[in-house]
Design a protein around this nucleic acid. Sequence first.
DNA 1: TTTATATAGTAAGGGACCTTACTTGTTTTG
DNA 2: CAAAACAAGTAAGGTCCCTTACTATATAAA
Lengths: 176, 176
Amino acid sequence: MEGFKFSLRDLPQREILNKYSKQFSGLNINAVESCIALLRTASQISEVYDKHFATYGISEGKFTILMLLYRQSDYQLSPVSLSIKAEVSKATMTGLISGLENQGLIEKAPNPNDRRGYLVRLRPKGLDLLERILPVHYSMTAKLMSSLDETQLKELTSLLNILTKNFPITNELKEE
Amino acid sequence: MEGFKFSLRDLPQREILNKYSKQFSGLNINAVESCIALLRTASQISEVYDKHFATYGISEGKFTILMLLYRQSDYQLSPVSLSIKAEVSKATMTGLISGLENQGLIEKAPNPNDRRGYLVRLRPKGLDLLERILPVHYSMTAKLMSSLDETQLKELTSLLNILTKNFPITNELKEE
DNA sequence: TTTATATAGTAAGGGACCTTACTTGTTTTG
DNA sequence: CAAAACAAGTAAGGTCCCTTACTATATAAA
């Protein structure tokens, strides 16, 4: 799931880091500063998004589910596919689906291929909601990133992708 | 649950964005891609950190509190200062302090200047814990960021700081 | 100095996501 | 084709952080 919940904190500044770098031999000041900046920036973006979604009565998690359904040509997916794509547990999906169903945004349809499960289907009300949210969401994103020009945005994306590709956890999972 | 994270990463996000960009006029593809990469990267880092803290029986929030106390020359701060610096609500601080106290990592000392409140003080056990966590924490950070060289790290930090400086909400809050 | 207002901290309850331990079907395999 | 292994979904309970509404103390203003 693109949403996550660390909150913005008063993280150490360069002065303090200099002090600590003498004490902790493994400390790379530039690495720590990048990391702090990354977490802080993401947290701020996430907060802006959350507040926007909240005005429509949904969470970032629910938005993700609606988007995943929206991308399907038939607007439907199984709970387990949703949970994998959204990167939440199956149990969390149960809760999200239940909430979205109560709000009338999705419905459960029988799964013809597997009687254990069902398919989650976007309802017209859900589609409408999404198509009201998206224009604002995208223009908010453009505005949030507007202090970087196109070259800088590409540079940022590239640096982040290099990082992500190298994360240990990610690579462990790939082996499965 | 840590299932396959392929959907967001490996499948042609760009293709979908191209489609949407025709539908939503305010959509800037590079901005959205940067934003997604940012949120995903931060989320992965946060997950690695959380798991490390969990092995010591504390959360990211508790770690932050311990760090804030660690930075004080007398190892103590009031709950309300902590909540401001950690950017959590006062009520959340109550819970964090209560947990840390039960774990014997901090203690409550009377506040000589204000009989409404008290001071939170790092106990030796808390100090020890922190000094066991920090070397690993810093070397983990170095490793997470090791796919970027020093120049790239500085570039990343710089781009992120440009972004943050320009965030609307952040600036509103700063005025308070 | 009394009254109004602001601040420190807590309690209660909520939302989002997690893990563990099921139940119920489906697939594999011996 | 039965038995074992596996997969889909749910329930229960936990964690972390939130908001709202309160108590108690401190400070400013009339």
